[in-house]
């Protein structure tokens, strides 16, 4: 008889659950505020983008992207719970709510934008797909890679670009696909492949970090455009806006001449109306996003402007601004206006 009652109770409990009244849309912002932490998806061990130092602290361009969003939303650039992912679980982790934002290494493409249930939040880094070969092989251009074995990371645009490029030129090649960039590169280093391909930023970062970078050569050409953008779940326009404007703020700060060290002083003294709106002195722009008014100030004060972030992580690797310079310096970085 006891089991009877237990069963009945079970059914009573389950019945309402089968017909849930819950049809509310996702609200990532309030989830993050409730949690007090931003869940940021990062790819582990990608020099320049995401590394861990000897004390277990993360640093890199992607990490600063996470910190940018956390500073804007929570006012604390370090209130982050990192969610380590592989390229081949990145999208599903985000789709399924395992992370609030994936700010690193995702190329903005038509199909991904339209079919994955994800939204891009604006390009923040322009790269291209390049190749590294051993100097000893004597290869100096991509066209000489006919018949070569090429290592690549799985489920990335690199895998498809490679196929498209070689097919269009009717060049034969064989491919070995690894679960992530790191394993692919290690396989190349161990002479499993004649070349390794990924976008040039992370390629350069990884080659520089080697013990014998001179033995390798990054070919001059690139075979694709790789505009990197943050990714969020589809169906939450406010959250997408927040991430977009958080990234935009770093570029704007560089245009305004704001840096980590001078932002506090300028906030107190500036008469420029746009900078005053930007830093939350007037206009109440933060509230429009559901954030505190000093959201952009926190980004600049805790993370820095775009140029500072770029210099911090990519200059030690010997990378130039190039396409990623401000528009007025001939690059593609342009901040949407704050008005």
């Amino acid at each position: 008889m006891e089991s009877w009652r237990a069963m009945a109770a079970c059914v009573l409990v389950l019945a309402p659950a089968v017909f849930p009244a819950d049809e509310a849309g996702a609200d990532t912002l309030s989830d993050v505020l409730d949690r007090g932490k931003l869940r940021c998806a990062v790819i582990e061990a990608s020099p320049g983008f995401s590394s861990i130092d000897a004390n277990g602290r993360r640093y890199g361009f992607d990490i600063d992207n996470c910190r940018t969003v956390a500073a804007a939303v929570l006012g604390d650039a370090d209130a982050i719970e990192y969610v380590p992912i592989n390229p081949n679980t990145a999208f599903t982790t985000l789709q399924s709510g395992g992370a609030d934002v994936f700010p690193g290494g995702a190329t903005w493409t038509f199909l991904r934008d339209t079919s994955l249930g994800l939204d891009y939040t604006g390009a923040y880094l322009y790269a291209g797909q390049g190749f590294v070969v051993r100097r000893a092989s004597g290869v100096s251009s991509i066209s000489e890679l006919e018949g070569a074995t090429i290592c690549v990371a799985q489920g990335t645009t690199n895998e498809q670009n490679l196929a498209d490029y070689f097919r269009a030129r009717r060049m034969k090649y064989s491919i070995v696909t690894f679960a992530d960039v790191e394993r692919g590169l290690n396989a190349y280093l161990a002479d499993r492949c004649d070349a390794f391909t990924t976008e040039v930023f992370s390629l350069a970062g990884r080659i520089v970090a080697l013990r014998n970078p001179d033995e390798h050569r990054i070919l001059g050409e690139v075979i694709s455009k790789e505009p990197f953008s943050g990714l969020v779940r589809q169906g939450d326009p406010r959250w997408r806006d927040i991430v977009f404007w958080a990234f935009n703020s770093r570029v704007a700060a560089e245009e305004f001449g704001l840096t980590m060290s001078n932002v506090e002083g300028i906030r107190a003294s500036t008469e420029d109306a746009e900078i005053r709106r930007f830093l939350g002195v007037e206009g109440g722009f933060g509230q429009q996003l559901g954030l505190s008014d000093e959201w952009a100030y926190q980004i600049v004060a805790q993370v820095g402007n775009y140029g500072e972030v770029f210099a911090r992580h990519f200059e030690p690797l010997g990378l130039q601004r190039g396409l990623n310079a401000l528009w007025r310096d001939g690059g593609l970085m342009i901040a949407m206006p704050y008005r």
Binding site: A45, P47, T89, A209
Partner: peptide
């Protein structure tokens, strides 16, 4: 280690991928 959690073997794999030790 295949799904990105670092048990004993995952940690060894991760440490061995450090370019300085590679």
């Amino acid at each position: 280690l295949v799904i990105g959690l670092f048990d004993l073997m995952g940690e060894v794999q991760r440490a061995a991928s450090d370019p300085q030790w590679l």
